[in-house]
Write a protein that binds this DNA or RNA. Structure first.
Length: 649
RNA sequence: GCCGGAGUAGCUCAGCUGGUAGAGCAGCUGAUUUGUAAUCAGCUGGUCGGGGGUUCGAGUCCCUUCUUCGGCUCCA
């Protein structure tokens, strides 16, 4: 007999070789029906796989992330089976589950797929699923495995096999499809009831652009048809939040082919929004002891040679700007830090002066690859809420913590709750691609890890993701469609101070080297606004929104009164506009609702007589009649209350 | 950059197998003077992304170029 420990701590005894499916069956038939796979001693297994010794067991269903992953991985195999049936000779690379669905990278031998093929694949998948074939696991010797795929002429699987150890190789077969696979899998194909091919894309084999491009087919499946329908509806809803769509509809920003791709043009409303964000940050920074600086958009090549950026990015950068003077070359600035280093150097510094914190909304230009450009999230010219802190080595940790506080302050203000803090460290395998000494790197990495821990951040550590000049802490946020973007960033830099020979005089009257910290809580204003738009679906917080209200006169007779209302409210510190078009009130309301204006102030005969406004709130409807002061107090009260709740100032 | 879609009026889109462009909204003009999600009528507006080619004839077919969208980390 073996002892099985369940997640609630209870222990049950079973015959040696009992499978988790059988264990589920012994608990309840309903549970057994829903079990997709099982976590045995922390490892996900097929539910049919016999357990031979004492173990902890967690039965996984569709409601567990690991259960979903099993389901989708098996679905990838099902799709592969369908592809093989429809396109004989297709070769397979890998087909992993994703957060939502799965993909399979395949070599279609030059064929291309069209949306009509999508339907064919979906139908074939469901047809095969109905056969209710089981996924059968089989251990193979490396020799047998190689023989199998040599026969099949699948060089991709053979490549995988090369790097696998003999004795650790398994195959899975369902129906007519056999694949090299570690597993685990769902019991049978029959539980896959709904399938959708989402899209296809090219993907380099092993992610290397030197390799052949395979076709990546994305799909998703569900145990119930209803869930697929709901998912597709949710996907449509998410697309409505896309900042590129809302940015156009709400007149926030635009692009022009004449100006150049990836160079955003901020329209008045977008600019107003952005200016308020900048003001918010300026206020917070001033309180945190930052000093403003302003630097030009171009600098001599020598500056970047000194900083090392030229060596690192020179080839990918925009081309140099030449001047009439022989040999003089300027570059558009890709970063603000070298300029700030020169500001630090403009005067001798004492240890008593440190830390010095220079802040600038610095616009930088980077040559991003054509295909990488994406709305406001990836552009070629953008403005960072940049700052550089110069401090003594003993101040690094404290300064780092203060910066984390500032980032959290911003995220809190804007209700960003779903973020992860990514700590990016050196690639231990390849330390030569980084600039700076080993000891300095270790010091910096420790400071980051400790600060993040002290602030209680939910962190992910990524090896090899560090910048070439130092480790960093990035705040990652997801957009409407689930894509991850980096917003705030904090980076320790022991390198630039050395390259620029920055110094301060210590209490010992000796010269010492300061440490530099780069930080940008928003990251770039462009990307931040993009994520903000998607986060609030265009319904910006009252304190930020470009237009807080619109005054809607019932007819032209009340245009004068309405104009007076606008003036008085503006004098009371609110932002709004007058909608005096010759339209009926219903039309004005509709248009302003669509434009997500928070408050609509309807004014007609009654209001004009009493010097009041009838207030309608976006998405809520009529909320009653206010006098002007009362309305201003109401709006400001909401803002103050919001700030108070979040402990903002 | 690479693979695969797309590009028709300011916006959203229609235009079958080639026969010289169409709707709604927006805009303009006029009528209406309106009470909580679209008042009515008329009008303007497009060298069909650009360039080249095939053809008697190209929005439609071919080539090329630009822009745009999805993807190119997630190693059975």
């Amino acid at each position: 007999m073996i002892k099985i420990t369940l997640p609630d701590g209870s222990v049950r005894e079973y015959q040696k070789g009992t499978s988790s499916h059988e264990i589920a069956l012994s608990i309840s038939e309903g549970l057994a029906r829903n079990v997709i796979s099982a976590k045995v001693n922390g490892e996900v297994w097929d539910s049919s796989r016999p357990i031979h010794s004492d173990a902890s067991l967690q039965l996984l269903t569709w409601n567990d992330d690991d259960g979903k992953a099993t389901f989708w991985h098996s679905s990838a195999h099902l799709m592969a089976e369908a592809l093989e049936a429809l396109f004989p000779g297709v070769k397979f690379w890998v087909g992993p589950p994703l957060e939502n669905g799965f993909y399979y990278d395949v070599d279609l031998g030059g064929q291309t797929l069209s949306p009509t093929d999508f339907e064919k694949i979906e139908q074939k998948m469901l047809e095969l699923a109905k056969q209710n074939n089981s996924y059968q696991r089989k251990e193979m010797s490396k020799k047998e495995a190689i023989a199998y795929f040599t026969e099949k002429k699948d060089e991709y699987k053979l490549d995988l096999l090369e790097r696998l150890e003999d004795g650790n190789i398994t195959f899975y077969t369902q129906g007519n499809f056999t694949d090299l696979c570690r597993g685990p899998h769902i019991p049978t194909t029959g539980i896959i009831k709904a399938a959708k091919i989402l899209n296809i894309a090219g993907a380099y084999w092993k992610g290397d652009e030197k390799n052949k491009m395979l076709t990546r087919i994305y799909g998703i499946t569900f145990p119930k048809d209803k869930e697929l329908k709901e998912y597709l509806v949710a996907l449509e809803e998410a697309k409505k939040r896309d900042h590129r769509k809302l940015g156009k509809e709400l007149e926030l920003f635009t692009f022009s082919e004449k100006v150049g791709m990836g160079l955003p043009l901020w329209l008045p409303k977008g600019a107003m929004l952005r200016e308020r964000l900048e003001q918010f940050m300026r206020t917070a920074q001033t309180k945190a002891g930052y000093l403003p600086v302003i630097t030009p958009h171009i600098a001599l090549k020598e500056l970047y040679v000194c900083s090392g950026h030229y060596e690192k990015y020179g080839a990918d950068a925009f081309q140099p700007i030449n001047t009439p003077q022989e040999g003089e070359q300027f570059y558009l600035k890709p970063m603000n830090c070298p300029h700030h280093c020169e500001i630090y150097k403009s005067a001798p510094r004492s240890y008593k002066d440190l830390p010095v914190r220079y802040a600038e909304f610095g616009t930088v230009y980077r040559y991003e690859q054509h295909g990488e450009l994406h709305g406001l999230t990836r552009v070629r010219g953008f403005t960072q809420d940049d700052a550089h802190l110069f401090c003594r080595p003993d101040q690094v940790k404290e300064e780092f913590c203060k910066v984390i506080d500032l980032v959290l302050y911003v995220f809190n203000a804007l209700d960003f709750k779903d973020y992860t803090a990514q700590i990016s460290l050196r690639d231990p395998e390849n330390k030569t691609k980084y600039i700076g000494s080993d000891e300095n790197w270790d010091l910096a990495e420790q400071a980051i890890i400790e600060s993040a821990k002290e602030k209680g951040l939910k962190t992910v550590v990524e090896l090899g993701e560090a910048a070439f000049y130092g480790p960093k802490l990035d705040f990652m946020v997801k957009d409407a469609i689930g894509r991850k973007w980096q917003l705030g960033t904090i980076q320790v830099d022991y390198n630039l101070p050395q390259r620029f020979e920055l110094e301060y005089t210590g209490s010992d009257n000796q010269k010492h080297r300061p440490v530099m910290i780069h930080r940008a809580p928003f990251g770039s204003l462009e990307r931040f606004v993009a994520v903000l738009i998607e986060h609030c679906a265009g319904n910006f917080p009252l304190w930020l929104t470009p237009e807080q209200f619109a005054v809607l006169p019932i007819s032209e007779k009340f245009n004068d009164y309405a104009a007076g209302v606008l003036n008085q409210l503006q004098a009371l510190g609110l932002r709004g506009k007058l909608d005096d078009r010759n339209e009926k009130i219903g039309k004005k309301i509709r248009d302003n609702e669509v434009n997500k204006i928070p408050f609509m102030l309807v004014v007609g005969e009654k209001e004009a007589q009493e010097n009041k406004v009838a207030v309608r709130q976006h998405g809520k409807g009529d909320i009653g009649v206010y006098d002007l002061k009362g309305f201003a107090d109401f709006v400001n009260g909401i803002i103050e209350n919001d700030f108070k709740e979040k402990a903002l100032k």
